[in-house]
Simulated assay, not measured.
Amino acid sequence: MQLLFLPLIFNSSMSFFGFGQSAEIDIVLNDAETRKKAEHKSEDGRKDKYFLFYDGETVSGKVNVTLKYHGKRLEHNGIKIEFIGQIELYYDRGNHHEFVSLVKDLARPGELTQSQTFDFEFTHVEKPYESYTGQNVKLRYFLRAAVSRRLNDISKEQDIVVHTLSTYPELNSSIKMEVGIEDCLHIEFEYNKSKYHLKDVIVGKIYFLLVRIKIRHMEIDIIKRETTGTGPNIYHENDTIAKYEIMDGAPVRGESIPIRLFLAGYEMTPTMRDINKKFSVRYYLNLVLIDEEERRYFKQQEITLWRKGDIVRKSMSHQAVIASQRFEGSSNQEKPRSQSHNEDDS
């Protein structure tokens, strides 16, 4: 007897033995039409725009569950939405370190006979860290809605971007450093301050006090250093964000060179120190001198970067006031204070 094997054709829109997704989920924020969006880089370097939030703001909206097949019921073990903030280290992708995890149950176990919309609200949500995608680490916030089923859940995620706004006290000391090689070279350089907002201008001056070697080239680099891991498993990644040529040619004793470096044109984040004990992002000004024999001399100084909010406080919602007070209550002269939820574009 000859057996006849017929090919089995499976269409992605069909429910194969009931295992396929018979519904679609969509997450819509209540203020989607008016909320500002911010550009954020993904792991592959692509830039996309996401809804922008700040610490203490409420996240609310609707979850739409749309049944694909008219007249067919959807049995489920509950419907929920989560607000999650997590850190993922690329060398340990199996483990997601959650620092915010909130859950709202939208429906008890049962069945849906038609498409349905569920409202949700996460009130005054704490978002303590800035969204970040680096070379070895990613910090993200997202909403995840899920219809729980016996065999396969139906879920949808939507990322948002969080910016941390702050202001430093007026006390912002200047940076003074010296580069010296005994009896050969003595240079002093001074920057107007040590803390800069992301659209600030670095103003400084370099003084040549003793020059007995032939300097051919001098530049200032902005170095970003990303540190991940702890103990023996610590990783440092240095990235040169900017190069600013100060001088091309030989200086003479007594000469001074002004520096004016605009930060707004570069992609940088605020300084991030020991974020959830998982990673740090720091920035350095690196002075580089090259002599005629191609020898290189370096001097490095850390600077603090921060994201500037409005200087004058505007009328704030109740939730913004709560967030602001919470940050100000724990601040000191070296820790930035939370500002109102408006970024200063100047």
Results as ranks from 00 to 15, higher is better:
residue 3 L to F: 06
residue 4 L to I: 08
residue 5 F to C: 04
residue 8 L to G: 01
residue 14 M to G: 09
residue 15 S to K: 03
residue 16 F to I: 09
residue 17 F to W: 04
residue 21 Q to D: 14
residue 23 A to E: 10
residue 24 E to I: 12
residue 25 I to T: 02
residue 25 I to V: 12
residue 25 I to S: 00
residue 27 I to S: 04
residue 30 N to D: 15
residue 31 D to R: 06
residue 34 T to N: 05
residue 36 K to A: 11
residue 38 A to N: 09
residue 38 A to D: 11
residue 44 D to V: 08
residue 47 K to N: 15
residue 50 Y to M: 11
residue 55 D to Q: 07
residue 56 G to T: 07
residue 57 E to F: 01
residue 62 K to W: 00
residue 63 V to L: 13
residue 66 T to G: 01
residue 68 K to Y: 02
residue 72 K to C: 09
residue 75 E to Y: 07
residue 75 E to I: 10
residue 78 G to R: 05
residue 79 I to V: 13
residue 88 E to P: 08
residue 89 L to Y: 02
residue 90 Y to C: 03
residue 90 Y to P: 04
residue 91 Y to N: 10
residue 94 G to D: 15
residue 100 V to Q: 11
residue 111 E to H: 05
residue 112 L to C: 03
residue 112 L to K: 00
residue 112 L to S: 00
residue 119 D to W: 00
residue 122 F to W: 03
residue 124 H to W: 00
residue 130 E to G: 10
residue 133 T to C: 15
residue 137 V to T: 08
residue 140 R to T: 12
residue 142 F to Y: 15
residue 144 R to Q: 14
residue 145 A to F: 01
residue 146 A to Q: 14
residue 146 A to M: 14
residue 148 S to M: 13
residue 153 D to L: 08
residue 154 I to D: 03
residue 155 S to L: 11
residue 157 E to A: 11
residue 157 E to D: 15
residue 157 E to M: 14
residue 164 T to K: 06
residue 168 Y to N: 07
residue 175 I to C: 05
residue 176 K to A: 11
residue 184 C to K: 13
residue 186 H to S: 12
residue 190 E to D: 13
residue 190 E to W: 05
residue 191 Y to F: 15
residue 192 N to A: 10
residue 193 K to T: 05
residue 194 S to I: 08
residue 199 K to W: 00
residue 200 D to K: 03
residue 200 D to C: 06
residue 210 L to D: 14
residue 210 L to R: 01
residue 213 I to L: 15
residue 214 K to G: 03
residue 221 D to T: 07
residue 228 T to H: 01
residue 230 T to M: 07
residue 232 P to V: 14
residue 233 N to Y: 12
residue 242 A to H: 01
residue 242 A to I: 10
residue 244 Y to E: 15
residue 244 Y to M: 04
residue 245 E to H: 06
residue 246 I to P: 00
residue 246 I to E: 05
residue 248 D to C: 11
residue 249 G to I: 04
residue 249 G to H: 08
residue 254 G to P: 00
residue 258 P to K: 02
residue 260 R to V: 09
residue 263 L to T: 02
residue 264 A to Y: 10
residue 265 G to S: 07
residue 265 G to T: 05
residue 270 P to L: 12
residue 272 M to D: 01
residue 272 M to S: 05
residue 277 K to P: 05
residue 284 Y to T: 07
residue 285 L to P: 00
residue 287 L to C: 12
residue 290 I to S: 03
residue 298 F to A: 10
residue 303 I to H: 06
residue 304 T to L: 10
residue 307 R to I: 08
residue 308 K to L: 14
residue 308 K to Q: 14
residue 309 G to A: 06
residue 310 D to W: 06
residue 312 V to C: 07
residue 316 M to R: 08
residue 317 S to I: 08
residue 318 H to N: 09
residue 320 A to V: 08
residue 323 A to N: 09
residue 324 S to R: 03
residue 326 R to M: 09
residue 327 F to A: 06
residue 330 S to Q: 09
residue 333 Q to R: 09
residue 338 S to Q: 09
residue 339 Q to M: 08
residue 341 H to P: 04
residue 342 N to M: 12
residue 342 N to S: 11
residue 343 E to C: 04
